[in-house]
Structures are given as C-alpha cells and as structure tokens.
C-alpha cells in the first residue's frame, strides 16, 4: 500500500493505523500533530484510522521560530 507521507510516497503494510505509523517512525506521540487527508485528527482517534492506498498524511511538530 502506498501513502503520501509529508509529500513523499511511502510504503506501508495494509491495515496500519495512524498510531502504528507514528510508532514505526519513532515519533513522540505527545509532540506531533497529524493531518489525515487534510483534516486534523486528534491523538485519541489515531488507532482507529486505518490507512488506505493513496491516503495523504502530514505530520508536524512545534519548533523554534520568531
């Protein structure tokens, strides 16, 4: 299955959830913000969202800025 992760094509196992993806990428779930097909999704719902082919995932974090 192919998804678009932060604008790049990435391969993932069918049936993975957003929570799985965050763990797989070794991201700290407390720090990241996820957009699923252009909608912000809260952390509580990450395990319930099963990724489908060509889904668009954007993962953001807070950084220093002026």
């Amino acid at each position: 299955m192919k998804i678009f992760l932060n604008g790049k094509i990435a391969d993932f196992v069918e049936g993975s959830s957003i929570a799985d993806l965050v763990v797989l990428k070794k991201l700290n779930s407390n720090y990241v913000i996820v957009e699923y097909n252009n909608q912000i999704v809260q952390k509580d719902s990450w395990p319930e969202i099963q990724l489908k082919n060509e889904d668009k995932i954007e993962i953001f974090q807070l950084v220093g800025g002026g």
Binding site: N6, G7, K25, K26, L27, V32, I33, E58, I59, F60, Q61, L62, V63, G64, G65, G66
Partner: peptide, 9 residues
C-alpha cells in the same frame, strides 16, 4: 513565539 514544521522522521 514558536513555529510549526513538517516532521523529518
């Protein structure tokens, strides 16, 4: 102030 950026895994 802070900013928001795409994560680079």
């Amino acid at each position: 102030t802070i900013a928001l950026r795409r994560v680079d895994p």
